[in-house]
Design a protein around this nucleic acid. Structure first.
Lengths: 207, 207
DNA sequence: CGAAACGTTGACCGTTTTCAATTACAGTGG
DNA sequence: CCACTGTAATTGAAAACGGTCAACGTTTCG
């Protein structure tokens, strides 16, 4: 596995089916993409916007299973199911690429290497998600942010290049943006990092 | 997908290779299973104990990528890599089932359905991990715990059966055990849950 | 050009973490 | 069979940390 471990744009498997079978669909805020128990017709990649996956319980309460963000694929597991196991609702106006399930499955069946590729992408997703979870086990905001930066960093000295806003980073590490700014200030003060435009250089200095 | 969504014991792909090629290996505390850049010889399932996956940075600092717990598989992504991308060290005495990489890959190559099965298991892992991450976005301890219980709950009335200790639950939801006990007390007080031996019954009453 | 989102910092408050202490067991070995 | 040890379950009190609210300059973009 040559590529970086924590990728900004996750790899996608949607190009496994020929591009002309992928349809784009626009959703308005609150529009429903699919509902729990609907037969699975397609898998998706979110091009823009934000989609919430919600599960309903027997007693009428709900749990948010996931909030898909721009660039993410979702409902992968549905490829192996007959019906969706949750609702998908656009939080804001969104655009999704829809990959017909049947096309996808037949593409996998036709070419064994394709299944492997799908598995490889999922495996790297698992790796990435596990590390995100691990980062959230760190309670201290500065340390958590530092760990996140370390994961992002490449080269010598380790440098994290940012293609997203700090607010986005805050959401990813599970802090408010204010907490992130304060953490940044602290880390910069004690010399752990140096901020340059659009990138952060890490200096050795284990907290 | 018929099975429960959040499984306690994750499904495993290790039985894809015939059982007699799977070797058990015992590790003492702090023993190293593999090191970053070692050629990938095997994939693993942790039978007992705890294994930490650690990544080293250019400047000598480290990041914990994941802490594998009993029953979990790990290093799946290594199946597609030449070398491990992190160290694996036993935190405590542990037992791992080792699946030879070559055996595994040839099993996948021989039978296309096997690759699909591997992909299916990975996809459900992704689903599970995403929901765990989502739960951690809930700041309030009682609400977070409640969301976790809802995910676990089955049947009518929704009931969560516990096969782990509350301390384990605390680690999973990212709280201290004290915070979990207090959250439990609150939820029980306001009638959201009823605790019986080894199980929790949820009552409707959205917080 | 104006609105919206981003970046940043201060102050205060609430919740969770920490530290501490106690009870309840379950397993162990004498 | 029981004292003994270690872990789980609980609860209390104090401290610390991050969330929330507020304010303001700056950048972005239609």
């Amino acid at each position: 596995m040559q590529g970086p471990i924590a990728k900004h744009q996750p790899d996608t498997w949607t190009d496994i089916v020929s591009a002309d079978r992928v349809r784009l669909r626009e959703l308005t805020g609150n529009e429903v993409l699919f509902r729990q128990n609907d037969p699975v017709t397609a898998l998706y990649r979110l091009e823009a916007g934000r989609i919430r996956l919600v599960r309903y319980l027997e007693d009428g309460t709900t749990v948010i299973l996931h909030t898909a963000r721009s660039g993410e694929t979702f409902a992968e597991a549905s490829a192996f199911a007959d019906a969706y196991h949750c609702d998908a609702v656009a939080e804001i106006a969104s655009r999704v690429a829809t990959v017909p399930k049947s096309e996808f499955l037949s593409a996998l069946a036709q070419n064994p290497a394709t299944s492997l590729r799908f598995a490889r992408l999922l495996a790297s997703q698992v790796r990435d998600l596990r590390s995100r979870l691990e980062i959230r086990n760190i309670r201290s905001a500065p340390e958590r942010l530092m760990a996140w930066l370390r994961l992002r960093a490449r080269g010598r000295p380790p440098t994290a290049v940012l293609d997203e806003t700090w607010s986005d980073v805050a959401a990813e590490v599970g802090l408010t943006r204010e907490a992130v700014y304060r953490a940044l200030a602290l880390l910069e003060q004690d010399g752990s990092i140096v901020r340059t435009n659009g990138a952060v250089v890490l200096s050795k200095r284990a907290v």
